[in-house]
């Protein structure tokens, strides 16, 4: 059974999500990958304000391909999440509530997810053209100089994902 989820996530919704659940996400997410994470992390380390309020947000690890004329966004599948692991607990402590990526996370991330009540979704890696159909709008929020690695806000409708690690630390990834 597929659960339809409206964003932003509430704590109650997060508690109801369990590893293995298929979901369709509707609402908005922010994006960010390696370079944006490094910058956000460095600002947190220095105690400086972030260019984007991440409190209550879901972040999608993606660097989209350019949009063809008439398309809201180019193909935009998930990138490997583990590269964000180093920076993730600091972002979760700042109120980030969900992550969408692909592949495994380290134990520090899972512990921080349990502590902060956070859910980790996987989108299907490599299904980028298919996934982009559920992204209706893309606008740049910060770090435009990073090109594809900038932070965007995506408006999504029935974005397909799977809960791979839930807020209880349970995982469906094969080890």
């Amino acid at each position: 059974m597929t659960k339809k989820i409206t964003l932003p996530l509430t704590d109650e919704t997060i508690r109801d999500l369990h590893a293995g659940d298929s979901v369709l996400l509707t609402g908005t997410v922010i994006t960010g990958r390696d370079a944006a994470h490094k910058r956000l992390y460095e600002l947190i380390e220095k105690g400086e304000p972030l260019p984007v309020d991440i409190n209550g947000e879901v972040i999608y690890y993606v660097g989209p391909a350019p949009a063809k004329p008439g398309h809201a966004v180019g193909p935009a599948g998930p990138t490997s999440s583990y590269r964000m692991d180093k920076y993730t607990p600091a972002l979760l402590d700042r109120g980030l509530k969900g992550m969408i990526g692909k592949g495994a996370r380290n134990q520090e991330v899972i512990d921080s997810m349990v502590k902060n009540g956070v859910v980790y979704f996987a989108a299907i890696g490599g299904a980028a053209a298919l996934i982009s159909r559920s992204i209706k709008k893309a606008e740049t929020l910060a770090y435009e100089d990073l090109g594809t690695e900038a932070i965007y806000r995506f408006t999504v409708e029935d974005f397909p994902a799977i809960v791979v690690i839930d807020s209880y630390g349970e995982s469906v990834l094969v080890k």
């Binding site: 993606v62 193909p75 599948g77 990138t79 490599g126 299904a127 980028a128 053209a129 298919l130």
Partner: peptide, 28 residues
């Protein structure tokens, strides 16, 4: 079943990429 479903999505993705002439994956 989940594996079968993922493979189905990948096949569908190839059909979309090919007919719309957009990249199969954003990582080109």
């Amino acid at each position: 079943p989940i594996g079968k479903n993922v493979l189905g999505q990948l096949i569908e993705n190839h059909a979309i990429a090919s007919s719309e002439e957009v990249p199969i994956c954003q990582d080109t």
